[in-house]
């Protein structure tokens, strides 16, 4: 058995997918359940870091198993998301503080 059919690839990919999905749901649940805007930002960064990270690692493993060689290109999505997340978070946090003062 080679490629994606082998349990050595299938089991980690399946586990990573399930974990990523659950983390994303919990993160978004935080967006609904937490009471203040500042607290909600923490829930969002959960789905954006580990939730997305699990899916991306699963994608790298799966495409490498299909192509029978290391295919790292999904990791570029991680790079972009990790580099850009602080800029969005910082601007939104400042916007909320500024608008909170005005009200």
């Amino acid at each position: 058995m080679t490629g994606i059919e082998s349990p050595w690839f299938a089991v980690p990919v399946a586990l990573l997918l399930v974990a990523g999905g659950l983390l994303a749901v919990v993160g978004s649940l935080g967006l609904v359940r937490l009471r203040t805007f500042q607290a909600r930002m923490h829930g969002v960064s959960m789905g954006g870091t580990l939730g997305l990270g699990c899916v991306i690692v699963a994608s790298v493993v799966a495409s490498s198993a299909i192509a029978q060689r290391f295919v790292p290109h999904a990791l570029l999505v991680t790079v972009f998301v990790v580099i850009t997340a602080p800029a969005t978070a910082m601007l939104l946090m400042r916007a909320s503080l500024y608008r909170g003062r005005e009200r």
Binding site: G27, Q38, T49, A85, A89, M93
Partner: peptide, 18 residues
């Protein structure tokens, strides 16, 4: 400082404010 901002923001539970 930019790297510190990335670290702080990517760990849930802490967000860089100012």
């Amino acid at each position: 400082l930019a790297v510190l901002a990335t670290i702080v923001t990517s760990t849930p539970g802490t967000v860089w404010v100012d």
